[in-house]
């Protein structure tokens, strides 16, 4: 753009005190968020948490009730979708069923009156990027789910947007394909070097793919940070529980177990289950309880322990690990141990 960006610009996308109401429903509640140029950024949260509404406000499909949306230093709060430097990959792909793959991908260039020869050239190139060479003349109905997903990606990328918005891009794919596409998307983002902003309710997806993520709950931001930061140091009990699994303890049981009031989180993979008679090493804390459930889940063994102090803890072990005692039966008296450094205080 020829217009000089104001000095206040911090990144590609900025939401500034954005609130969105649908009638009496408060979908997004005063959110401020900065996304840097070239970031792979995830908006993560349960359904109805406001993450998709945020994405739609950045794309221009919704207008904030109050607050501002900035794109590359330009206030686009009331700019129409077709005048924004964003392109979207829709959850249901929204491919035009009456057009071929090439026509779908070339659509954005066609409506912007890009010359036919250049159009063909760019469509061909981007179809190569998403590994769909040779599919140009197919109709969307003749493609598999994964191929449609790539067409949707190519259709957005060919316009060379400043920011690519992805709304649950992998939601409609089966698990195997989804894991493949996660890596592929990540690679693609590194190759094209533009900002990717994607919405997901799948915490694994967010952890795997993003450079940074924002966790949404009830229209508000719970925490923004890198995946490791959010996983290891959740800011709120909600984040601790939503990202991975956490054993959260507060009140009287916290006093009994950890000798302090407050809210504590212990990750299931940081706990060990021992027989009651086993010796506890000096650098570990422990608590006694009863094994109430054992679930074998292939790569992991998931065990549930009801502690005498009250709380019920989940413990996961790699099935190949040797440190824990896998032979313990349901109903056995057990001892849970953990390193004090694994204990994380939420507040």
């Amino acid at each position: 753009m020829a217009v000089a960006a104001p000095a206040t610009t911090t990144g590609d996308v900025r939401l500034e005190g954005v609130t969105k109401r649908f009638g009496s429903v408060l979908a997004v509640d005063d959110i401020t968020l900065d996304i840097a140029s070239g970031e792979f950024f995830a908006l993560l949260g349960p359904s109805g948490s406001g993450k998709t509404t945020c994405l739609r406000m950045i794309a221009g499909f919704e207008q904030p009730t109050s607050g501002k949306v900035w794109l590359a230093g330009r206030d686009v709060t009331s700019v129409a979708p077709f005048d924004r430097e964003t392109n979207t990959v829709f959850q249901d792909y929204a491919l035009f069923p009456h057009m071929t793959v090439a026509q779908n991908v070339g659509y954005g260039l066609m409506v912007k009156r890009v010359a036919k020869s250049e159009r063909r050239h760019r469509v061909e190139a981007v179809l190569g990027t998403v590994r769909l060479d040779g599919y140009a003349d197919r109709k969307p109905a003749q493609l598999s789910g994964g191929q449609r997903q790539r067409v949707a990606l190519a259709r957005a990328l060919v316009n060379e947007p400043r920011v690519l918005l992805l709304d649950e891009p992998l939601g409609a794919l089966d698990r195997k394909l989804r894991e493949e596409m996660q890596l592929e998307l990540k690679q693609l983002q590194r190759d094209v070097g533009i900002t990717f902003l994607f919405v997901t309710h799948d915490q694994d997806e967010a952890l795997t793919m993003s450079d940074r993520m924002a966790v949404f709950n009830g229209g508000r931001l719970e925490q923004v940070g890198a995946p490791a930061e959010i996983y290891d140091r959740p800011a709120t009990p909600f984040v601790a529980d939503f990202i991975g699994t956490s054993n959260i303890v507060e009140g009287a049981p916290a006093r009994a177990l950890f000798g302090s009031d407050g809210v504590f989180s212990l990750r299931p993979e940081r706990l060990r289950v021992l027989a009651e008679s086993d010796r506890v090493s000096a650098d570990e804390s422990s608590a006694e309880g009863r094994l109430v459930d054992v679930v074998y889940a292939g790569a992991t063994l998931r065990r549930v322990v009801a502690l005498d102090a009250g709380p019920v803890f989940v413990v996961t072990d790699a099935t190949s690990a040797s440190g824990s005692s896998p032979e313990l039966q349901r109903g056995a008296r057990v001892r849970l141990t953990w390193k004090p450094s694994s204990l994380y205080r939420l507040g």
């Binding site: 499909f61 979708p81 392109n87 979207t88 829709f90 929204a94 035009f96 069923p97 659509y107 409506v111």
Partner: peptide, 24 residues
């Protein structure tokens, strides 16, 4: 969503009707 996709790709209201909505 097809109309949203069209506008997202840069088509105005009339272009969207002509190329996407009407053919459907």
């Amino acid at each position: 969503s097809l109309e949203e996709a069209s506008m997202d790709l840069g088509a105005g209201v009339l272009q969207t009707f002509r190329f996407v909505t009407f053919p459907q």
